[in-house]
Protein backbone atom coordinates (compact mmCIF):
# COMPACT_ATOMS: atom_id res chain seq x y z
CA UNK A 1 0.00 0.00 0.00
CA UNK A 2 1.52 3.23 -1.12
CA UNK A 3 0.12 5.41 1.65
CA UNK A 4 1.89 3.27 4.20
CA UNK A 5 5.08 4.19 5.91
CA UNK A 6 7.27 1.97 8.09
CA UNK A 7 7.61 2.60 11.77
CA UNK A 8 9.44 0.71 14.46
CA UNK A 9 7.67 -0.21 17.68
CA UNK A 10 9.60 -1.12 20.77
CA UNK A 11 7.13 -2.90 22.97
CA UNK A 12 7.55 -4.11 26.52
CA UNK A 13 6.87 -7.82 26.84
CA UNK A 14 6.42 -9.83 30.01
CA UNK A 15 5.08 -13.32 30.53
CA UNK A 16 5.22 -14.20 34.22
CA UNK A 17 5.57 -17.88 33.44
CA UNK A 18 8.64 -17.38 31.27
CA UNK A 19 10.26 -14.04 32.00
CA UNK A 20 12.00 -13.04 35.17
CA UNK A 21 11.69 -9.36 34.31
CA UNK A 22 10.03 -7.44 31.47
CA UNK A 23 11.98 -7.21 28.23
CA UNK A 24 11.37 -5.34 25.01
CA UNK A 25 10.59 -6.62 21.57
CA UNK A 26 10.90 -4.67 18.34
CA UNK A 27 8.42 -4.75 15.48
CA UNK A 28 8.71 -2.92 12.22
CA UNK A 29 5.34 -2.53 10.57
CA UNK A 30 3.74 -0.43 7.85
CA UNK A 31 1.39 2.20 9.29
CA UNK A 32 -1.23 4.45 7.77
CA UNK A 33 -0.96 8.20 8.30
CA UNK A 34 -4.23 8.44 10.24
CA UNK A 35 -3.48 5.57 12.62
CA UNK A 36 -3.41 5.88 16.36
CA UNK A 37 -0.91 3.97 18.48
CA UNK A 38 -3.64 1.44 19.25
CA UNK A 39 -4.14 0.68 15.56
CA UNK A 40 -0.50 -0.27 15.33
CA UNK A 41 -0.76 -2.54 18.37
CA UNK A 42 -3.81 -4.21 16.89
CA UNK A 43 -2.01 -4.69 13.60
CA UNK A 44 0.86 -6.36 15.41
CA UNK A 45 -1.52 -8.55 17.38
CA UNK A 46 -3.54 -9.52 14.31
CA UNK A 47 -0.90 -9.92 11.66
CA UNK A 48 2.54 -10.23 13.22
CA UNK A 49 2.53 -11.63 16.72
CA UNK A 50 -0.59 -13.13 18.28
CA UNK A 51 1.08 -13.45 21.64
CA UNK A 52 1.00 -9.72 22.35
CA UNK A 53 -1.49 -8.86 25.07
CA UNK A 54 -3.07 -5.48 25.61
CA UNK A 55 -6.43 -4.19 26.76
CA UNK A 56 -8.68 -2.08 24.59
CA UNK A 57 -12.31 -1.74 23.67
CA UNK A 58 -14.17 1.36 22.59
CA UNK A 59 -11.33 2.96 20.55
CA UNK A 60 -13.11 6.32 21.05
CA UNK A 61 -11.45 7.48 24.25
CA UNK A 62 -14.26 6.79 26.66
CA UNK A 63 -13.93 3.24 28.01
CA UNK A 64 -10.51 3.96 29.49
CA UNK A 65 -8.95 0.56 28.97
CA UNK A 66 -6.08 1.31 26.59
CA UNK A 67 -3.87 3.51 28.77
CA UNK A 68 -0.16 2.79 28.23
CA UNK A 69 3.18 4.54 28.32
CA UNK A 70 4.03 5.89 24.88
CA UNK A 71 7.58 7.19 24.68
CA UNK A 72 7.59 7.53 28.43
CA UNK A 73 4.32 9.47 28.77
CA UNK A 74 1.05 7.93 29.91
CA UNK A 75 -1.37 8.07 26.98
CA UNK A 76 -4.70 6.71 25.86
CA UNK A 77 -3.37 4.81 22.89
CA UNK A 78 -6.64 5.06 20.96
CA UNK A 79 -6.35 8.83 21.07
CA UNK A 80 -2.65 9.20 20.41
CA UNK A 81 -1.82 9.83 16.77
CA UNK A 82 1.23 8.07 15.38
CA UNK A 83 1.93 11.12 13.27
CA UNK A 84 2.96 12.93 16.46
CA UNK A 85 5.91 10.56 16.82
CA UNK A 86 9.07 9.82 14.91
CA UNK A 87 10.11 6.58 13.28
CA UNK A 88 10.47 4.74 16.57
CA UNK A 89 7.71 4.51 19.14
CA UNK A 90 8.14 2.88 22.53
CA UNK A 91 5.07 1.37 24.12
CA UNK A 92 5.08 0.02 27.65
CA UNK A 93 2.68 -0.79 30.46
CA UNK A 94 1.57 2.03 32.75
CA UNK A 95 4.17 3.13 35.28
CA UNK A 96 3.50 2.74 38.98
CA UNK A 97 1.44 -0.42 38.41
CA UNK A 98 2.46 -4.04 38.84
CA UNK A 99 2.48 -5.67 35.41
CA UNK A 100 0.39 -8.78 34.83
CA UNK A 101 1.46 -9.45 31.28
CA UNK A 102 2.97 -7.41 28.41
CA UNK A 103 0.97 -4.17 28.42
CA UNK A 104 -1.64 -5.32 30.92
CA UNK A 105 -1.42 -3.91 34.45
CA UNK A 106 -2.92 -4.84 37.81
CA UNK A 107 -6.10 -2.86 38.49
CA UNK A 108 -7.21 -4.48 41.74
CA UNK A 109 -5.21 -2.03 43.82
CA UNK A 110 -7.07 0.81 42.19
CA UNK A 111 -10.43 -0.87 42.69
CA UNK A 112 -9.77 -0.92 46.43
CA UNK A 113 -8.87 2.77 46.49
CA UNK A 114 -11.89 3.51 44.32
CA UNK A 115 -14.21 1.81 46.78
CA UNK A 116 -12.53 3.44 49.77
CA UNK A 117 -13.82 6.91 48.88
CA UNK A 118 -17.45 5.69 48.91
CA UNK A 119 -18.29 6.83 45.40
CA UNK A 120 -22.04 6.76 45.78
CA UNK A 121 -24.72 9.11 47.04
CA UNK A 122 -24.94 9.00 50.82
CA UNK A 123 -28.08 10.38 52.39
CA UNK A 124 -29.73 10.05 55.74
CA UNK A 125 -33.05 9.52 54.01
CA UNK A 126 -33.50 8.38 50.46
CA UNK A 127 -36.40 9.38 48.29
CA UNK A 128 -38.59 6.81 46.56
CA UNK A 129 -38.54 7.02 42.76
CA UNK A 130 -42.26 7.83 42.79
CA UNK A 131 -41.50 11.10 44.58
CA UNK A 132 -39.64 12.40 41.55
CA UNK A 133 -36.17 13.73 41.01
CA UNK A 134 -34.12 15.95 43.29
CA UNK A 135 -33.95 19.52 42.10
CA UNK A 136 -30.47 20.51 41.06
CA UNK A 137 -29.77 23.83 39.40
CA UNK A 138 -27.44 24.02 36.40
CA UNK A 139 -24.99 25.86 38.68
CA UNK A 140 -25.10 23.07 41.26
CA UNK A 141 -24.50 20.57 38.47
CA UNK A 142 -21.62 22.64 37.14
CA UNK A 143 -19.98 22.58 40.58
CA UNK A 144 -19.11 18.88 40.29
CA UNK A 145 -19.64 18.03 36.63
CA UNK A 146 -16.00 18.28 35.64
CA UNK A 147 -14.95 15.79 38.31
CA UNK A 148 -17.55 13.28 37.14
CA UNK A 149 -15.88 12.96 33.74
CA UNK A 150 -13.17 10.53 34.85
CA UNK A 151 -12.99 7.37 32.73
CA UNK A 152 -10.69 5.51 35.15
CA UNK A 153 -8.01 5.18 32.52
CA UNK A 154 -5.28 5.28 35.17
CA UNK A 155 -3.04 7.71 33.32
CA UNK A 156 -2.98 9.99 36.35
CA UNK A 157 -1.77 7.14 38.54
CA UNK A 158 0.98 6.37 36.06
CA UNK A 159 2.19 9.96 36.07
CA UNK A 160 1.98 10.79 39.77
CA UNK A 161 5.27 10.44 41.66
CA UNK A 162 3.44 10.11 44.98
CA UNK A 163 1.54 7.04 43.73
CA UNK A 164 4.82 5.30 43.02
CA UNK A 165 6.36 6.24 46.33
CA UNK A 166 3.50 6.03 48.80
CA UNK A 167 1.55 2.81 48.32
CA UNK A 168 -1.25 3.92 50.65
CA UNK A 169 -2.01 7.05 48.67
CA UNK A 170 -5.58 7.03 47.37
CA UNK A 171 -4.43 8.75 44.22
CA UNK A 172 -5.88 11.30 41.81
CA UNK A 173 -8.84 9.53 40.22
CA UNK A 174 -10.21 8.12 43.47
CA UNK A 175 -9.94 11.44 45.29
CA UNK A 176 -11.46 13.34 42.38
CA UNK A 177 -14.35 10.91 42.45
CA UNK A 178 -14.90 11.25 46.18
CA UNK A 179 -14.71 15.01 45.84
CA UNK A 180 -17.23 14.84 42.99
CA UNK A 181 -19.76 13.29 45.39
CA UNK A 182 -18.86 15.74 48.16
CA UNK A 183 -19.68 18.60 45.82
CA UNK A 184 -22.94 17.04 44.61
CA UNK A 185 -25.91 18.94 46.02
CA UNK A 186 -27.80 15.64 46.43
CA UNK A 187 -25.16 14.10 48.65
CA UNK A 188 -24.79 14.30 52.43
CA UNK A 189 -21.79 12.05 52.89
CA UNK A 190 -18.99 14.60 52.93
CA UNK A 191 -18.17 14.10 56.60
CA UNK A 192 -17.65 10.39 56.01
CA UNK A 193 -15.55 10.92 52.92
CA UNK A 194 -13.53 13.70 54.51
CA UNK A 195 -12.63 11.25 57.23
CA UNK A 196 -11.20 8.97 54.55
CA UNK A 197 -9.45 11.91 52.94
CA UNK A 198 -7.77 12.84 56.21
CA UNK A 199 -6.49 9.35 56.90
CA UNK A 200 -3.01 8.20 56.06
CA UNK A 201 -2.57 8.15 52.31
CA UNK A 202 -5.41 10.60 51.91
CA UNK A 203 -5.40 13.99 50.28
CA UNK A 204 -2.47 15.34 52.28
CA UNK A 205 -0.06 12.95 50.61
CA UNK A 206 -0.40 14.96 47.41
CA UNK A 207 2.67 17.08 46.87
CA UNK A 208 1.50 19.38 44.06
CA UNK A 209 3.17 17.62 41.16
CA UNK A 210 0.09 18.46 39.08
CA UNK A 211 1.07 15.61 36.76
CA UNK A 212 -2.39 14.02 37.04
CA UNK A 213 -3.93 17.06 35.42
CA UNK A 214 -1.19 17.31 32.82
CA UNK A 215 -1.84 13.81 31.50
CA UNK A 216 -5.61 13.56 32.00
CA UNK A 217 -7.15 12.90 28.57
CA UNK A 218 -10.56 14.11 29.74
CA UNK A 219 -9.60 17.40 31.38
CA UNK A 220 -10.92 16.26 34.73
CA UNK A 221 -8.14 18.18 36.49
CA UNK A 222 -7.75 15.83 39.46
CA UNK A 223 -5.12 18.12 40.97
CA UNK A 224 -7.80 20.74 41.43
CA UNK A 225 -10.07 18.17 43.07
CA UNK A 226 -7.39 16.94 45.46
CA UNK A 227 -6.43 20.40 46.59
CA UNK A 228 -10.01 21.53 46.97
CA UNK A 229 -10.58 18.42 49.01
CA UNK A 230 -7.59 19.26 51.22
CA UNK A 231 -9.13 22.57 52.03
CA UNK A 232 -12.62 21.23 52.64
CA UNK A 233 -11.29 18.38 54.77
CA UNK A 234 -9.49 20.89 56.99
CA UNK A 235 -12.59 23.03 57.27
CA UNK A 236 -14.62 19.95 58.13
CA UNK A 237 -12.03 18.89 60.71
CA UNK A 238 -12.01 22.31 62.32
CA UNK A 239 -15.80 22.31 62.42
CA UNK A 240 -15.78 18.97 64.18
CA UNK A 241 -14.15 20.69 67.16
CA UNK A 242 -16.58 23.56 67.20
CA UNK A 243 -19.64 21.34 67.04
CA UNK A 244 -18.83 17.63 67.25
CA UNK A 245 -22.42 16.82 66.39
CA UNK A 246 -22.17 18.26 62.89
CA UNK A 247 -19.99 15.30 61.93
CA UNK A 248 -22.95 13.01 61.96
CA UNK A 249 -25.19 14.19 59.25
Amino acid sequence: MSDRQKKTFVITRFDPDKDEVPKTQTYEIPVRPDWKVLDALNFIKDEVDGTLSHRWSCRMAVCGSCGMMVNGEPKLTCKTALSDYGDTVEVGPLSNFPVIRDLVVELEGFMEKFKAVKPWILRAKEKAPEEGVYRQSPAELEAFKQFSMCINCMLCYAACPVVGNEPDYLGPAAIALGHRYNLDSRDEGDAERNQVFREEGGVYSCSYANECSEVCPKNVDPAAAINQAKFLAVVDWAKSFVSPRSRKK
Partner: peptide, 14 residues
Amino acid sequence: GRTRTAPPVMPPLF
Protein backbone atom coordinates in the same frame (compact mmCIF):
# COMPACT_ATOMS: atom_id res chain seq x y z
CA GLY B 1 -2.72 -10.83 42.86
CA ARG B 2 -3.34 -14.35 41.70
CA THR B 3 -0.35 -14.44 39.38
CA ARG B 4 3.20 -13.21 39.65
CA THR B 5 3.57 -9.62 38.49
CA ALA B 6 6.48 -7.50 37.39
CA PRO B 7 7.14 -4.81 40.01
CA PRO B 8 5.88 -1.29 39.41
CA VAL B 9 8.39 1.22 38.09
CA MET B 10 8.38 4.99 38.53
CA PRO B 11 7.46 7.08 35.50
CA PRO B 12 10.46 6.78 33.14
CA LEU B 13 11.43 10.43 33.23
CA PHE B 14 11.20 10.78 36.98
